[in-house]
Design a protein around this nucleic acid. Sequence first.
DNA 1: GACCGATTTAATCAATTGATTAAATTCTCC
DNA 2: GGAGAATTTAATCAATTGATTAAATCGGTC
Lengths: 200, 200
Amino acid sequence: MKETTTEQHIIEAAKKVFIAKGYENATMRDIAKEANVNSAMVHYYFRSKDKLFGIVFDSIGKFFYENVYQIYKEDLDIFEKIRKVVYNRITILIQHPELPSFLVREMFKRPELLEHNYSRQIKESCDVFMLQVEAAMANGRIRKINPMNLFLNIDSLCVFPFHIRPLMQHCSEISEAEFNELMNERCTDVADFIIQSIKL
Amino acid sequence: MKETTTEQHIIEAAKKVFIAKGYENATMRDIAKEANVNSAMVHYYFRSKDKLFGIVFDSIGKFFYENVYQIYKEDLDIFEKIRKVVYNRITILIQHPELPSFLVREMFKRPELLEHNYSRQIKESCDVFMLQVEAAMANGRIRKINPMNLFLNIDSLCVFPFHIRPLMQHCSEISEAEFNELMNERCTDVADFIIQSIKL
DNA sequence: GACCGATTTAATCAATTGATTAAATTCTCC
DNA sequence: GGAGAATTTAATCAATTGATTAAATCGGTC
């Protein structure tokens, strides 16, 4: 019991610190302090900073994508599905606006982090969706479009603003709360934007 | 003469190293080595790592945005303008695919880096474009849409894939060359996607 | 209560790194 | 060609940091 608690405690602290500071700027001492334990404890439970980070990165990546690829696999009308994906994605992003930049930052520095499970699931949900797009094109429900690009477009429109949030906040001189408000309003706009573009 | 050359030489080396490794992972010794000078030289010319980085970040940011905001200010039909922005942006991105992730990475860690000039110019070009969108809506040339969101959408669709490039390459098992090829094809798709969505 | 393994602590190591310094070398101007 | 400033070099400092170690403490079992 106790071990699990301490271990989990350290993982949660590590998530917080790694997200806030990034891999290089986070120190084992930071994490230990955040978890209220001696810094040797962190090594005792996780051997090395790398191993701990691997666990954290994996967990965050999974959390960030699992919701969406569930929806992509659901049996829904294509327009409904797009609306649901967009709504879901942006809602989660508003609650965790730091995740996209964190994932990008670390993924670029060490692409080997992607070896793990959830990237396979992304591909899976992408494949399912692309089939549905092909079908909708064949049915004459949507115009001719490259399915992969449509999949990409959906994610682009949802996630990108969170990648450049500091820039947006600086240019528009808005607070974090106002930014979230903007994103909230943007939700239906984005879904409309996509559907307007592909419907016949 | 000579000083300018050495100084510029170091700046170029610093760009390369900072982009490749990020601020924390790049060392003054790395930069010195890349520039073929003694590491004290880097301090001699730029006082501190921070100052040098500020110069580099500013220069890269300016380079990354100046092309686009020029186009936004040109006197072009709105559809033409969108096509030109998209083409231009993606073309530059293919030549410098590391820039978006670099800028995001550093901007999130130190938003104070944005105090500089070019963020004002982004705002300026955004304002110009939004006026044009309002006019096009009034003319009945495009449907009703939030102008700021349209501006955001254009950048999202162009830039986002480069933010998640490692993930895309891993999921699709494609090389860098193949990725670039995809982006090249994507160019007209993106412009079409946007125009289809807003035209009446 | 004594034993034994798991957990926790404090102290310390070795390596890295931004920065400084003082001496050496080069350049410039007279 | 020589004085003085600018540039370059090698050596070194002080601080940080991931990791290790040995000792201390805790927890359960007999």
